[in-house]
Design a protein around this nucleic acid. Structure first.
Length: 335
DNA sequence: AAAATAGACAACCGCGATCGC
DNA sequence: CGCGATCGCGGTTGTCTATTT
């Protein structure tokens, strides 16, 4: 006698999203900002359920998302965090900016689990899955913690590099509290990047007639995806990258090219957004960290403290947008 | 070249948590 | 305080692509 599925209605579309749907969704969120998902399908004119819209946005269209190509540092970090937190993918994702919980979960299930299993078979399973030939039972707690600390330092360095302010440029800071600011933010550039990638894939699968595509995308853009963002300041690097992308996309229609002009092709520009997102996620993680429930609470707190201390130490260069630690009483104990 | 199989990943589903009335 | 609506998370499934036979 469970609750009936929210998407169990007639006329609600399921399955793969089309580029048109993506553009409608991005366009809508560009104007109104994310949130109030219940109203999104109706207001945006999408034949999807609210859940599907939210999922599509958070896992695929959201700016600042990096997909695929996990680095070894990221993998190590995921393995460490999985050992500490278990299958709490959202919490793990909060420590990996630009990665979504779904992406991490998929990567874990398809790659890392096998990797660990393989290592388990050849050298004996170790909690970090990478470097020990002894079983975890044989390693003393002290040894394991030292090893954990070493690897965490490596992952920390990688994270620090990834978040380096030098890599971000020209992205206006998002202020989620002000919905209209979304419309002016360059953050949508990487949404379009994601869409563009998906469009290429989609074109491979089902080549469209240029005419119909043109019309369809013209309608889309006139409906709300303005070129305003495209006109925002972009660096020379972005320009050259755009050119390169255009070369690879000759077969695409003019409408596609206007989409390319709309975006920056530099996902690192979304670092500010990623930071704000990861901060939010960290806040939620802080909320859900319940020492009385979590057997690894000590390690978890250590890890969190490491992360937040680092952020605090880099305060000058590395400022969380929107929600700063020192403004939040929840983090007093960490500062 | 075609069929079968495996791998990868996007999306769905169900449940618990949270929010607002 | 109770209840319904909504959101967010994790597990699972479905589909597409690549590889092997």
């Amino acid at each position: 006698m469970g609750r009936p599925p929210c998407c169990d209605k007639d006329g609600v579309k399921k399955g793969q999203w089309t580029p048109e749907e993506d553009l409608i969704l991005v366009s809508y969120i560009q104007q109104h900002g994310p949130g109030n998902w219940r109203a999104v399908p109706t207001n945006a004119g999408l034949l999807r359920c609210s859940k599907s819209c939210r999922l599509r946005w958070t896992n695929y269209l959201r700016p600042g998302i990096k997909r695929g190509n996990f680095t070894e540092q990221e993998e190590k970090m995921i393995i460490h965090l999985q050992a500490l937190l278990g299958n709490r993918w959202a919490a793990i994702a909060s420590y990996l900016p630009q990665r979504t919980d779904n992406d991490i979960k998929n990567h874990w299930n398809t790659h890392l689990k096998k990797k660990l299993k393989k290592l388990h078979g050849t050298q004996g399973y170790c909690r970090d899955g990478f470097s020990s030939s002894a079983s975890s039972e044989q390693i003393s707690r002290g040894q394991w913690e030292r090893k954990l600390q070493t690897d965490i330092n490596m992952a920390k360095q990688a994270l620090s590099d990834a978040l380096s302010p030098q890599k971000s440029s020209g992205l206006t800071e998002l202020k989620p509290s002000n919905g209209n600011s979304y419309a002016k933010s360059g953050a949508y550039a990487s949404s379009a990047e994601n869409i563009a990638k998906m469009l290429k894939r989609w074109m491979r699968k089902s080549p469209l007639k240029p005419g119909s595509t043109q019309q369809s995308f013209d309608n889309m853009f006139s409906a709300g995806v303005t070129t305003e963002s495209a006109n925002s300041s972009q660096g020379a690097d972005d320009h050259s990258r755009k050119e390169e992308e255009k070369k690879c996309s000759k077969e695409m229609s003019e409408a596609f090219q206007s989409l390319f002009a709309f975006e920056s092709f530099d996902s690192s520009n979304s670092d500010d957004f990623s930071r704000s997102m990861s901060t939010e996620a960290s806040l939620s993680l802080q909320d859900e960290t319940k020492p009385d429930l979590d057997p690894h609470a000590g390690q978890l707190l250590l890890l969190e403290k490491w992360l937040f201390d680092d952020a605090a130490n880099q305060g000058k260069d590395y400022q969380f947008s929107d929600t700063s630690l020192d403004e939040n009483p929840k983090f007093e104990f960490l500062l």
